[in-house]
């Protein structure tokens, strides 16, 4: 029950993109087409889960025993960056189709604040190992949901008769704002 709550809290109520406003860059940048947006969401979910596993381990096995909690920012950056590099190489070697689907998006996610935010939230909320993984999964699912909805709207927007000054980025930002307002309706349903 606890884990289910954590999942839906991260995915919908406290959606990383639309409630915390983390990871706006890929949210706007890669939401042109549903197919690529969905791939981006999958890649982000993948990285988020792996990040939550490794950062939890490093934090609790190395940083806490040595009382080095203040190094969490620096070490998390190091961990995430090198981990994604490694995962990218690994996927490229093992599965070319998967690399094509995720590969180009992986480096984009590496330096994303959503991933960093996830690692820091897990520490902040004092989650256990399993809770951390579920939280990462939920955050990834929420990111995928948000970016896919956005891509769906933007595909329709291409056909709409938008006043010329609003075409492109302006209307996208307005849509993102309205979408965030809609997700505000969930706020308070689950605390945490």
């Amino acid at each position: 029950m606890d884990l289910i709550l954590i999942f839906f809290s991260a995915a919908i109520v406290n959606n990383f993109v639309l409630s915390y406003f983390l990871g706006i860059c890929p949210f706007i940048g890669v939401s042109n087409k549903i197919s690529s947006a969905f791939s981006m969401g999958l890649a982000a979910t993948f990285v988020m889960v792996i990040t939550s596993i490794v950062t939890w381990l490093i934090y609790h096995i190395i940083l806490v025993p040595f009382e080095l909690e203040f190094l969490q920012y620096v070490s998390f950056i190091l961990i995430i960056a090198s981990l994604v590099q490694f995962v990218e190489m690994f996927i490229k070697k093992v599965s070319q189709p998967l690399y094509r689907a995720l590969g180009i998006f992986l480096p984009l996610i590496t330096t994303n604040c959503a991933i960093m935010g996830l690692a820091l939230f897990i520490v902040l909320k004092e989650y256990t190992f399993v809770q951390g993984i579920v939280y990462g999964l939920g955050a990834g699912a929420g990111f995928t949901l948000a970016i896919t909805i956005m891509a769906g709207i933007r595909e329709e927007l291409d056909l709409a008769d938008i006043p010329k000054p609003f075409r492109g980025a302006p209307i996208t930002l307005i849509v993102a704002g309205i979408l965030a307002l809609a997700f505000m309706g969930f706020s308070g349903l689950i605390s945490g």
Binding site: I58, I62, L63, F66, L71, L78
Partner: peptide, 8 residues
């Protein structure tokens, strides 16, 4: 701190 970060 230096040793840990360097090691990592």
């Amino acid at each position: 701190a230096i040793a840990t970060m360097g090691g990592l």
